[in-house]
Design a binder for these strands. Structure first.
Length: 699
DNA sequence: GAGCACTGC
């Protein structure tokens, strides 16, 4: 393959990070690398060298002596399951306090918790437990090691802002920089000033370790004061753990590729032709790319004939029906090679065993938020070097592997961004602001973030929350509305709709609608069944629009005894409906707790519409009088928008509508649309529409 | 008549 590929010179993963300010440096030997001695570790502190023979000793030493420890780990270093056990053994869970370990994903929480319970030989839910949404597998006064999603820990802070239940908190996968992780890190830094005895362990990839360390480094003045006492040191330490993964040989394209879908297909065929057995994982950007690549690969295999017996090509993306998704986990029959063509889902969320070859397109779909237009866009963008390494690492889980990057080494070294833009800088800030406000953080603009969101996004969020009556003139949470909204784990506009429904007497209906809106889609769709699923949808269609249609579906599902056959017959996604039931029950519990009235309006859909408007008045649109193709304009910003073809109001084109969300492609499409009476807008949100008129002059 | 990277509470 040498005529197409240039072997790379990227250094192996898991190397020492330079800590310039006299912190600690650790290097652990890789289990498979010949360059480092097996099981050996060394500690250097300035000129002092401490012999440490075990990873365990090093961790405990750091925890004893440092308020904050930054751990650099590579995938598969074992830190995730080992560190909590060491901490427990060393007696860090004392006086009824717990050790918390967070993960960004529910599945990872469950997996790590059960593995640790198994390693410790205890029953899951006793000494070792976990908490994720809808599932609390812990026992008060018995559980000492608690695994949880970072989102759950944030929710816990609303009742216990200093997290006094915990003596040590370990945040895993911090380099992924999810919104919850970033909020959590900011808050933990704050907590640490009030609770200097709290130990933090931040687990991150090498590439982010330095910036994490900088973030947790206290201001110089403060550090001098603290160092006078003989208390714990405030310097964060960096611990570098070499991953257990096998070496992955990196190959770069000699020339920039024109068409990465075609290049991915050709590369896969070359691997199949010239490389020994082993499965292939191809990273592309989305459903369209993936379906095209599957088609191309299948066609080319058939026309050339020579590969036909040996390849099993499987697509993988989250929108794929459950059964199709599970195919990728099955082992290829003897003598066959499995090729999985995937989105980013295989980068972190799913782990495929048996992958030896990775083909990396260098792109992924990423969300970007424009605070000026208040619109989120999904665009194909270059990945970061951190992602590229993560993707390559997927080839080294079972034995030494190879990674083919469909870009040049020059591009990788000189042009690819080092790390991705943190999610918080690419998102709408509305939910985030309300969470901080609920935790008593008044100076939102001055909050110490690992990465600050843009001022525009913050201001836009404050405006939206003010217009919803969630924040007052002083940007404080209103009572009771603001505090109630903060308790509900949904988009604030949805939460506002629920609170309004309690006053209007239609909360049973609105909670159902909120639950349906919180799942991806309750319809089964896909190529080949469009006609049937459209017809099924018409059986439920309501003249008022999609929200009321959801009520009809829920009613039918309920009357069928929550039957999966009923769902199948009506092209309704059974798994989605189960989730609707779960969310609905949680929302009812929360509604009761915060003093809302649970009541049904029976068939008075006028009340339902009023409640929806109370949350979504800012999304009102009217049909352009001269428009022949269903063009609407938003009242707020006069933006051109269209009803999405998946809506029951598609081609009905009522004069006035309100939408739940926009999806931007070549046009802006409104998803989940409801007809409204414009007088209702002035009724429910007179302040907003007056304000908008004066804004209009400004534009 | 069209489209949805991926999480999470």
């Amino acid at each position: 393959m040498s005529q197409f590929w240039k072997p790379g010179t990227e250094r192996p993963q898991g190397r020492v990070v330079d800590d310039e300010e006299g912190g600690l440096l650790f290097l652990f030997g890789s289990h498979h690398s010949s360059s480092a001695r097996h099981g050996y570790a060394s500690i250097e502190k300035q000129r002092q060298r401490l012999p440490v023979s075990k990873y365990r000793t090093a961790i405990l030493y750091l925890v004893e002596t440092h308020a904050t420890t930054i751990i650099v780990g590579e995938t598969g270093s074992g830190k995730t399951t080992q560190i909590p056990q060491y901490l427990k053994e060393a007696g860090w869970a004392t006086g009824g306090r717990l050790i918390a370990c967070t993960q960004p994903r529910r599945l990872a929480v469950q997996a790590v918790a059960s593995r640790v319970a198994e390693e410790m030989g205890v029953k899951l839910g006793e000494e070792v437990g976990y908490t994720i949404r809808f599932e609390d597998v812990t026992k008060p006064d018995v559980t000492v090691l608690k695994f949880l999603t970072d989102g759950v820990l944030l929710r816990e802070m609303m009742d216990d802002p200093l997290l006094t239940k915990y003596s040590v908190i370990m945040v895993d996968e911090a380099h992924e920089r999810s919104i919850s992780t970033d909020i959590l890190l900011g808050l933990l830094k704050k907590i640490q000033r009030r609770r200097p005895e709290l130990r933090l362990i931040i687990s991150s990839a090498t590439i982010e370790a330095k910036s994490m360390s900088d973030f947790f480094r206290m201001r110089k003045k403060r550090r001098e004061i603290e160092n006078k006492d003989h208390g714990p040191q405030v310097e964060p330490a960096i611990l570098s753990v070499e991953g257990r993964g096998f070496n992955v040989q990196i190959n770069y394209a000699e020339e920039p590729v024109q068409d990465y879908v075609q290049a991915a297909v050709s590369t896969t065929l070359l691997i199949h032709e010239r490389e020994p057995a082993g499965d292939v994982l191809v990273f592309l950007t989305g459903q369209d790319d993936i379906d095209a690549a599957v088609q191309l690969l299948t066609d080319q295999v058939q026309t050339t004939g020579k590969h036909s017996s040996g390849l099993i090509v499987l697509p993988l993306y989250s929108g794929l029906p459950r059964a199709d998704q599970e195919l990728v986990f099955s082992q290829a029959p003897r003598g066959k090679r499995k090729v999985v063509i995937s989105t980013n889902i295989a980068e972190t969320s799913l782990t495929l065993e048996g992958i030896v070859y990775v083909v990396d397109s260098g792109f992924s779909k990423q969300r970007f938020y424009n605070p000026i237009s208040d619109i989120e866009n999904l665009v194909v963008a270059p990945i970061s070097r951190a992602s590229a390494r993560q993707r390559a690492g997927r080839a080294g889980r079972v034995r030494p592997g190879k990674c083919y990057r469909l870009y040049t080494e020059e591009y990788f070294l000189n042009h690819m961004p080092n790390a991705g833009i943190p999610e918080i800088q690419r998102s709408n800030m509305v939910s985030c602001v309300i969470q901080l406000k609920a935790l008593g953080i008044d100076n939102i603009l001055g909050f110490d973030w690992p990465a600050s969101p843009s001022a525009e996004a913050m201001i836009r969020a404050l405006e939206v929350l003010y217009s919803l009556g969630i924040l007052d003139d002083d940007a404080k949470l209103t009572s009771p509305t603001g505090f109630q909204v903060a308790e509900i784990p949904l988009d604030p506009m949805v939460s506002k709709m629920i609170i309004a429904s309690s006053q209007l007497g239609c909360s049973e209906e609105i909670i159902t609608i909120a639950a349906v809106l919180s799942v991806q889609s309750i319809w089964i769709s896909g190529r080949g069944i469009q006609k049937e699923s459209d017809e099924a949808k018409l059986r439920f269609a309501a003249a008022e629009g999609d929200h009321v249609t959801f009520l009809n579906v829920y009613k039918g599902f309920h009357q069928s005894g929550k039957s999966s056959q009923w769902c199948h017959k009506n092209y309704v996604n059974y798994h989605a409906m189960r989730k609707v039931l779960e969310v609905r029950e949680q929302l009812k519990r929360i509604a009761k707790r915060i003093g809302l009235v649970l009541k049904s309006c029976e068939s008075d859909m006028q009340l339902v519409r009023k409640a929806v408007i109370a949350g979504f008045f800012a999304n009102a649109c009217h049909l352009e009088a001269y428009s022949h193709d269903g063009m609407y304009k938003t009242l707020r910003g006069s933006q051109e928008v269209y009803i999405h073809p998946s809506s029951v109001l598609f081609r009905v084109n009522p004069k006035w509508v309100i939408y739940h969300s926009l999806v931007s492609t070549d046009r802006q499409y409104m998803r989940n649309v409801l007809t409204i009476d414009p007088s209702c807008l002035l009724d429910v949100a007179p302040h907003f529409y007056k304000l908008q008129q004066s804004n209009h002059l400004l534009f």
